[in-house]
Write a protein that binds this DNA or RNA. Sequence first.
DNA 1: AATGAATGAGCGTTCATTCAT
DNA 2: CATGAATGAACGCTCATTCAT
Lengths: 210, 210, 210, 210
Amino acid sequence: MIITDKHIHILQKAEELFAQNGYEGTTVRDIATAADVNLAMISYYFGSKEKLIEILFKERMEGTKLRIEAVVNNQSILPFQKLEIIVDQYIERVFNSQNFFKVMLAQQMLQKNEVIIRFMTQYKLSYATLIEEVIQEGRRLGHFSKDDIDTLLLLTSMTGTVMHTVVSKDYYREFNKHNKLEEQDLDTVLKQKLSRHVKNIFKVTLGYEQ
Amino acid sequence: MIITDKHIHILQKAEELFAQNGYEGTTVRDIATAADVNLAMISYYFGSKEKLIEILFKERMEGTKLRIEAVVNNQSILPFQKLEIIVDQYIERVFNSQNFFKVMLAQQMLQKNEVIIRFMTQYKLSYATLIEEVIQEGRRLGHFSKDDIDTLLLLTSMTGTVMHTVVSKDYYREFNKHNKLEEQDLDTVLKQKLSRHVKNIFKVTLGYEQ
Amino acid sequence: MIITDKHIHILQKAEELFAQNGYEGTTVRDIATAADVNLAMISYYFGSKEKLIEILFKERMEGTKLRIEAVVNNQSILPFQKLEIIVDQYIERVFNSQNFFKVMLAQQMLQKNEVIIRFMTQYKLSYATLIEEVIQEGRRLGHFSKDDIDTLLLLTSMTGTVMHTVVSKDYYREFNKHNKLEEQDLDTVLKQKLSRHVKNIFKVTLGYEQ
Amino acid sequence: MIITDKHIHILQKAEELFAQNGYEGTTVRDIATAADVNLAMISYYFGSKEKLIEILFKERMEGTKLRIEAVVNNQSILPFQKLEIIVDQYIERVFNSQNFFKVMLAQQMLQKNEVIIRFMTQYKLSYATLIEEVIQEGRRLGHFSKDDIDTLLLLTSMTGTVMHTVVSKDYYREFNKHNKLEEQDLDTVLKQKLSRHVKNIFKVTLGYEQ
DNA sequence: AATGAATGAGCGTTCATTCAT
DNA sequence: CATGAATGAACGCTCATTCAT
C-alpha cells in the first residue's frame, strides 16, 4: 500500500478524533469532515475504518524500534546513558504524539482488534528485549548492582508514569496551581520533572552507582 | 435515587461489558441481555446509558476516599507505614476491580462526559490532598529527607505503574514465560512485585530512612 | 419464529416488490414504505433482508407438498385423474401467486442464497417423487403404455410451460390480439388453454389410453 | 455505435457475471475487473451499466431472426422438418449460451428496462410470426390435422421446457442419479431427451402424421 | 483514448430511546 | 412496575458515475 500526503493528512485527523472520542466514538463521517475529504474516500483510501486504525498504528510504530536499536547498538555510549537517552526519547515522543498514545492506551485496554494487538505485542516485546540487553550489558560491566531486576516492571513504571502524567495533565495543573501556565510551558515543566523522576526510578531499581 | 439490588446487578454486568468492549462498544441491549432484564428497563431504571455509567462511577468511588481517610487519620500508624498501607490497598483494589479501573482509565482518556470528569477530578484531588498531608507529616517528623517532593508525580507513578501492569499482563506473561501460571497465580506474583517496587519508588523519592 | 399478521403483511408487500424489481433491485426501504412500517422494523421482525426472503420461501412452500400428497394418497382417484388434478392445482397456484413464482424462478436462476436453494431442491425432489409414485401406479394398472418415461422432463414441461406463459402474458396478449381482455379474463382463457395443453402432453408422454 | 473487440470482450465478461449474479448483483467494478479494463472505461465505452446490457441484448438477438428466416424460407424442406430444425437449433443455442438465456429470462421477469422489453417483444413476435407461417403452410399441405393450434402456447412449451431444463439441471442430476456424469455429458443426454420430447409435443399438438 | 481519483446518493443495519399497554 | 413493539437517527460502506489529467 502506497501512503500519500492525503493518506497522512487523513490519518492525522483520524488520530486526533480517536484520541478525543475513542475509536467507536469517532465516525467515518467525522474523519471525512475533519480531513475535508469525501466520505467515500475513507473507504476508498483505507478499505475500512478498522483498516485505517491499523495503518495508523503501523505508521506510528514504524521507526520506533529502529530508534531504540540505534541507541542500544551505539558502542560509544555507556549503559546507563543509553537508558537515559531512551527515557528522554520516550518522554519526548509521548508528549509530541499525545493523541496517538491515548489511542494506543485505549486500544490496549479494549483489546478488540486482533491486528493491532499483534502490532502492539511485537512492538512491546522487542522494546523490552532491547532494554534487557542494555541492562545485561550494565550488569556485566558492574555498573548495576541489583541482580533481580524485572525489566518489564521497570518499563511499565516508565510508560505508566509518563502516560498517566499526560492523561492527568488537568489534575496536575489544578493541584499544583499551574493554571496560568500555557499548555506548552506546562509540558516543558512536566517533561523535566518526569525525566528526573523516571531516571531516578531506573537508577534505584538497577542499583546504578555513578 | 434509590439503588436496589436490581440496580446493583445491572451495574455489575454493565461494568464487565464496558471493561471488555468499551463504553461505545457496549450496547444497552448487551447490558439488558447480560443482566437478564428487559431492554426498556435500563432506560427506565437509569434514565439513559450515560446516566448509568455516571451512577456506576459514583457507586465505585464511594467509600474510596473514606478508606484513605481512615488510614491517614489513624494516629497509631507512622507516616511511611500509612503510605505502604495505601499502596497495598490501591494494588489490591485495582487487581480486584480490574474491569472498573479499565473503564475509568478509558473515560479519563476520552474526557467526554462532564459529570464523570467532575467526579474523577474531585476524587483524584482529595486523594492527592490526603497523601500530601501524610507526606507533610513525615517531613515534620524528619522521616522524609527530600524537600522538593512532587506528590502528584509520585501518585502518578503509583497509579500508572499499577494500572499499566494490569493492562499489560499479557505481555508480562509472554516476556517472563509465566504462560503456565494460572490467572490468579500471576496476579499474586504481580501484586507482590508491584508492592515492593512501588514502595521502593516512594522510599527513594521521599528520602525515607528506616 | 412466530409469524404475526404484520409479518404476513410485510411478506406480501416484499413478494410484490421482489417480483417487480428482483431481490437486489428491491431495497429494505422500499419494503418498509410499501408495507407502511418503520424501516427498522424489517430488521427487527426478520433479522435481515436475506432472512426475510428465506422466510417468504418457507411460508410459500409450506403446505404444497401436503396438498400433492393428499391427491396422490387418495385411493378413490385413478392415476391419470390424480395427474390431472395436480396439473390444474399447479396452474391455479401459479396464476394465483404469480409474484411468488416469478421470485422463485429468479432465485432458481441466480442460485445465490444457500438456504433458498436447499428449500427449492427439497421441494422439487419430493414433488417429483410423489408424481413418480402416481406414474408407477398407472403403469402397474396398465393405464400408461410407455415404459421409458422421464418424470422430471415431464414435470419440467409442465412447470416450464405454465411459468413461461405467466411470464410472457404480454406477448400472448399482443400476438393473439387479446388486448381488450381484462387481466382476469385473459388469465381465465390462458388457464383453460394450459390445462388442456399440459394434460395432453402428459397423456401423450405417458401413453395414456382412455 | 462502433463495436470493437474490446467491446465484445467486455460484453462477454458482463454476460457471464449477469448470469451468475444477476444484473443488480453485478457491479461495474466486477465487470471491469473480469474484463481487465479500467473501471472508468465501462461508462466510457457503453455510457452506462444499463446501456451495456441493452447492447448485450441487441448483440445476442442479432442474427437469431435471420437464422429462423433461413429455415422458414427454405423451399426444399417440408414444414414439420422445418419445425424440427428450429427446435434443435433452439435447444442447441440455449445450451451453448446458457448464461445469456438466464439473463434474458431474468430480465423478462423483472421487466424494468424499457429498451430491453421492446427488443424482446419484437424478437418474440417475429419469431412466433415465422413459426406461424410454417404451421399455416403445413396445414395447407394437409400435414397437420389440428385446426385450433395455439402457436404461442406451443412455442412457450418449447422455450419453457428447454429453459427450465437448463435452469433445473441440478435437480435433474440428483433425481436421476446422473451425479457422476460430466457437465458436458449430462448436457448431451439432456439435449437428446429434450429434442425427442419437444418434437413429440409439436407432433401431437399439430396433429402431424408421418 | 485512457485512467486513477473522487463523489453524491443510497445501501442494509444497528443504535438508544420511547411508546402503548 | 414492567415489557414487547416500535421509531428516528445515524452507522460503515458500496454503488454507478464523473472529474482532471
